[in-house]
Computed example of a mutant assay.
Amino acid sequence: MNETSAALFGSAVPFLGTYTPRLDDKGRLILPAKFRGQLAPGLVMTRGQERCLFLLPIDEFRRMHDQLRQAPVTSKQARDYLRVFLSGASDELPDKQGRISIPPMLRRYAGLDRDVAVIGAGTRVEIWDLQAWESYLEEQESGYADTTEEVFPNGPF
């Protein structure tokens, strides 16, 4: 965490920005330097929506898991979500170089080969195939301005 981030956000600094590292031949990823401090104590990697991967700091994973546990077991939708979310989860500890290994099953799910986009998404980090991310972003940009009033009913600016 740099001084500017600490001044703006305190200890709960959101993950911000887009980075384009490459996976090595063993399926390892060097985490962006800005994300390493928050992920150094450990993280949970799992399937995200739109065929990306979520990297969740341990505290955020616990918070999400606690919410999932409150869903009624009688809800098929809740059971399905829980199964998909947790069955692909892998707890990881970055090495001294800030690298994590992405399990083959998760690389296949997200279509990761070599070039990836690592994006800050607030409380989590997402890993995308770079081409898939660029296509997604291009598709979403046209609607971005149109949704401002839905996301910020009182106006953000």
Rank of each mutant, 00 (worst) to 15 (best):
V44D: 07
S75P: 06
N154R: 13
S87A: 14
A78G: 11
L53G: 00
F15V: 07
T74V: 08
N154P: 02
A145N: 12
D66Y: 08
D25G: 13
F54T: 02
D129W: 03
R47L: 08
F85E: 04
Q131P: 08
P103Q: 00
E134S: 10
W128I: 02
A78W: 04
T4A: 13
P14V: 12
Q140F: 06
K34F: 06
V44M: 07
K96I: 05
R22Y: 01
G111C: 03
L93Q: 12
G88I: 06
V44E: 02
V125P: 05
D113H: 07
P21K: 06
P156Q: 09
R22G: 01
S11E: 15
E150R: 15
L112T: 07
P72C: 06
Q140Y: 03
K76A: 10
G27Y: 01
D24Q: 09
E139Q: 15
R36Q: 13
G10P: 04
L82D: 14
L86E: 13
S142L: 08
R99M: 05
P41R: 00
L82A: 15
E139N: 15
E50Y: 10
L31I: 13
N2D: 15
D24I: 03
I58N: 10
P57V: 04
L23N: 05
A89P: 04
E3D: 14
D59G: 04
A40M: 07
G17P: 05
A71D: 04
I127W: 02
L112V: 08
S87W: 09
F15S: 05
L137N: 12
T74G: 11
Y136H: 15
W128C: 07
L93A: 12
V118Q: 00
L137T: 14
A40E: 00
L8Y: 12
R47Y: 00
A7G: 09
F157M: 15
E126Y: 05
F61W: 15
L43A: 14
K76C: 00
S142H: 08
P57I: 06
A117L: 04
S142Y: 03
R63T: 14
V84A: 12
C52E: 09
T147L: 13
Q77F: 09
I102P: 02
